[in-house]
Amino acid sequence: MKNIALGQYYPAESPIHRLDARMKVILAILYIVCTFLCKNVLCFAALACSSILLILISRIPLRTVLRAIRPIIFIMLFTAVINLFFTKGEVLLFSWWKLQIYREGIYSAVFMVVRIIVLILGTSLFLTYTTTPIALTDAIESLLSPLRIFHAPIHEFAMMMTIALRFIPTLSEETSKIMNAQKARGVDFSEGGLIRRAKSLVPILIPLFVSSFRRADELATAMECRCYRGGKGRTKMTIPRLHVRDFVALFLMVAFGAGIVLLNRYGYGYTM
């Protein structure tokens, strides 16, 4: 439990790190749209190349990047298998009992896997790896601010996110402290059946809840002491500004999307 990194932000000097967080949110959304525009081999090849290019530009070590994919390997395999066996097509390659594999099935399985990998890589490279959680919440607040017209509590929402992020390391430290304290009194978390294990969580969860409420209460008092009155009239310490590079990045992304649309026309082979 020691030194858990909050989120996955990887500090580095790269053109992607330098982009405005708001622009990165927009770029990530556009990139997701691009992955869904892809229809044929050429497009998916271009998409895969773009992801590799993004990794290179972001200067994040490949091993760190691949860590983002690890949790979804199962979903990926599952999707691949489903697509492999259940896509009907024209060219039958393999048949055994009720299982049939068509050429189209192979294509569609590969496409889906590439799409999922690129989806995850795109969002992590634009958002979690290159943007600090605080910058990200600020960006979301700023992008959602037009909704204020409809009296949506955008500032409150962003403040809640910031506080939640801020307290993740605190609570995880607290959890390990309480766990150690109860272990010292003879609780064993790795012993016994399911029910016994669930029961052994009670001595952890109750103190954790109690201290969370205490912390929330203390924080609220501290904020009131400093005259926090919600978002109205509140200014920012750092005012984000869009630079030329942000617009260049946006232009490149739109151009990439247009390229994908064009490639869809000249595709050959299996089309999704």
Partner: peptide
Amino acid sequence: IKKIRFRVGLVMQYPEYQLF
């Protein structure tokens, strides 16, 4: 190791937060 923990009792910092 559990047996050791009964022989060596440890009271952590601010132990009042572990009452449940």
